[in-house]
């Protein structure tokens, strides 16, 4: 199979691997660095990581699949996370998520057709005093309704 990753992305991954050589417990911060940079953790780089950190490819694979935060496929330009934990449930998160799915035309773990927004579930953003809550990229929004989320989506998509 041909490499799907561009040469530039591969070089950046290589730089992260180099930067994490000799770091205690390097795998966790390394995976974050890669995903923060290129958006996901491509499986084709497992051999390089396993070599650099003296792990088996199976161990790297097992590590990535264990943690929900890490993903092995690209996401949209923006990530919208909807809180599904108890406090938000008590304040109507179920209806909210149904409305958002309908508006965006996607289910969880899917990306809108224009490639703009990936929808993900999340379990508590620490914003429970102002439930229901969502997070767009790194910003949290509280006491939201479907209307506000729609405005938020169009704001980030249009600039």
């Amino acid at each position: 199979m041909a490499n799907k990753l561009s040469t530039i992305a591969l070089e950046r991954v290589q730089a992260h691997i180099e930067a994490h050589r000799g770091v205690e417990g390097a795998l966790l911060p390394l995976m974050h660095a890669i995903q923060d940079d290129i958006g996901y953790i491509p499986e084709e780089i497992y051999p390089q990581i396993s070599k650099a950190l003296a792990l088996s490819v199976a161990e790297v694979h097992g590590f990535v699949t264990f943690y929900h935060h890490f993903r092995t496929h690209p996401v949209g330009k923006h990530v919208l996370q909807v809180c599904r934990a108890e406090s938000c449930q008590a304040m109507g998160a179920e209806k909210l998520e149904a409305d958002i799915k309908k508006q965006l035309g996607v289910d969880y773990h899917e990306t809108t057709v224009d490639g703009q927004v990936t929808l993900l579930p999340v379990y508590c953003l620490g914003n429970c005093a102002c439930s229901p809550a969502v997070m767009m990229d790194e910003d949290v929004y509280g006491r939201v309704d479907a209307q506000m989320v729609a405005e938020l989506v169009s704001e980030v998509c249009n600039g």
């Binding site: 934990a85 108890e86 406090s87 379990y123 508590c124 620490g126 914003n127 429970c128």
Partner: peptide, 11 residues
């Protein structure tokens, strides 16, 4: 790791 819903004092 503050994992439980309804908790935010660590944050």
């Amino acid at each position: 790791d503050e994992g439980d819903s309804g908790t935010f004092s660590d944050r």
